[in-house]
Design a protein around this nucleic acid. Structure first.
Length: 404
RNA sequence: GAGAGCGUAGCUCAGUUGGCAGAGCAGUGGACUGUGGAUCCACGGGUCGCGGGUUCGACUCCCGUCGCUCUCCCCA
């Protein structure tokens, strides 16, 4: 029989990997809880248009990375490539803007992008995202970055937090024009991709890694010099807040994000070890309106759980494992004991094998137990059990129920 | 979409001008039914990714194909 294989880019997470994944997820969720974010459980499938409209028709995500398909009635659907689009759709559809002056939501779950898999990149990957709807206050931006900073600090992950402002409807066009003009002047030094980008999305040229492009772009007009009064004010307030929160950050005037909906603040946490982005976000003040809602400013970020997990050095520690060995005709007694220990919250594994004590203790080691609990005729008769510390070899007799 | 590397036992990997398919670990069993962590013995396990070609003979050489990994583009 031919055996099956998981689909390319779709991975099983097992063992330590699964534990790290869970640890990261729980740490972030706990952080979101204390910041008073409310969970919203979103569908994995949306109408294709939801993503096309929000993420932007010209982006790589929409153009070549979507798992899109038609259902039986010919509706054009897609597996979500990111979370913000769906969150905004839900915000509008459920009239969440009528609930409170502003709302803070988070979601968690799988995202799908049809890309060539490589280190830290899967076709199904997982994100936790947080969004604040309904406020222009740069304090929201700052708190989000603070939250991100705290997560990374607690996990001991070495990153640089980069921030930038990419302006708004008012100030962006002038910069764009100036940039295109500048790029045309240095066209000879740009790579092919960048020449193409100049017309479609000139901001992205600033982000190019090709050395000659980097060099050519050094003197390019900076968005920061074009910011309108409002954006300038917003950005400087944000930096002020970050300083007050003592968050180390680096201003990166070339930081651009790949999605169309961003305005003003954009930020990223980049691993100093691997150079990959692990958390990224920004403000998107027009998106809610563009998705059919009332004009509503918003900010958010998303973290890649796998990417964070793979930077995790320390292994999450586990509760001790007790390996219970029934020895002789004592199953009734042994199982009652197991029940008691488990009800106390202990991790108990009852041996599923027969064999001498020697074999059983070997088994205990193989299963990575911390303690062996030996229950034989003697124990049953005397109503106690024997517990052996498998690290030290020390062994003591214990009456059931009192703490071990 | 473009490029590079790798596919031999469950895992990590050897495999000599082209001449019977190997080791370590893991697994199973064992003078051993009250004491383990590198004690001993035995055993099982393979379409050498797949398909073709060259050859008396291919794990080895050639072509194709699939898969995995990594890089670029882009992104979490």
């Amino acid at each position: 029989m031919e055996e099956f294989q998981s689909v390319r880019g779709f991975h099983d997470l097992l063992g330590e990997e699964a534990k790290r994944f869970r640890y990261v997820s729980e740490l972030i969720r706990e952080k979101l809880r204390v910041y008073n974010f409310e969970e919203i459980v979103l569908p994995v499938v949306e109408y294709l248009e939801v993503f096309q409209r929000s993420i932007g028709e010209a982006t790589d995500i929409v153009q070549k990375e979507m798992f899109s398909f038609e259902d039986r009635k010919g509706r054009r659907l897609a597996l979500r490539p990111e979370g913000t689009a769906g969150a905004v759709r839900a915000y509008v559809q459920n009239r969440l803007y009528a609930l409170k002056p502003y709302v803070k939501l988070f979601y968690e779950g799988p995202m799908f992008r049809y890309e060539r898999p490589q280190a830290g990149r899967y076709r199904q990957f997982h994100q936790i995202g947080a969004e604040v709807f309904g406020t222009m206050d740069p304090l929201a931006d700052a708190e989000l970055i603070n939250l991100v900073h705290e997560i990374l600090l607690e996990m001991g992950i070495d990153v640089t937090i980069e921030v930038n402002s990419i302006g708004c409807k008012v100030c962006r066009p002038a910069h764009r024009d100036a940039l295109i003009e500048y790029l045309s002047g240095v066209e000879g030094h740009l790579c092919d991709v960048c020449i193409d980008r100049r017309d479609k999305n000139p901001l992205r040229v600033l982000d190019c890694k090709v050395p000659t492009c980097k060099e050519a772009v050094k003197e390019a007009p900076k968005m920061l010099d074009f910011l309108c009064h409002e954006c300038r004010e917003h950005y400087s307030k944000l930096k002020e807040h970050l300083t007050n929160l003592s968050i180390p950050y680096r201003e990166n005037p070339n930081l651009v994000r790949g999605l169309d909906y961003y305005t003003k603040t954009v930020f990223e946490a980049v691993s100093n070890e691997l150079g990959i982005t692990v958390i990224a976000g920004g403000r998107y003040d027009y998106l809610v309106e563009e998705m059919g809602g009332p004009p509503t400013p918003a900010v958010g970020f998303a973290v890649g759980i796998e990417r964070l997990s793979m930077l995790l050095r320390s292994e999450p520690k586990e509760d001790p494992l007790y390996f219970l060995i029934p020895f002789g005709e004592v199953l009734d007694y042994a199982l009652t004991l197991a029940k008691t220990l488990r009800s106390e919250g202990r991790r108990v594994e009852v041996s599923y094998r027969k064999g001498g004590l020697k074999k059983q203790l070997e088994l205990a080691n193989r299963l990575k137990a911390d303690y062996a609990i030996i229950v034989g005729e003697e124990e049953k008769l005397g109503n106690f059990y024997t517990i052996k510390d498998l690290k030290t070899g020390q062994q003591i007799r214990v009456q059931p129920s009192p703490s071990l």
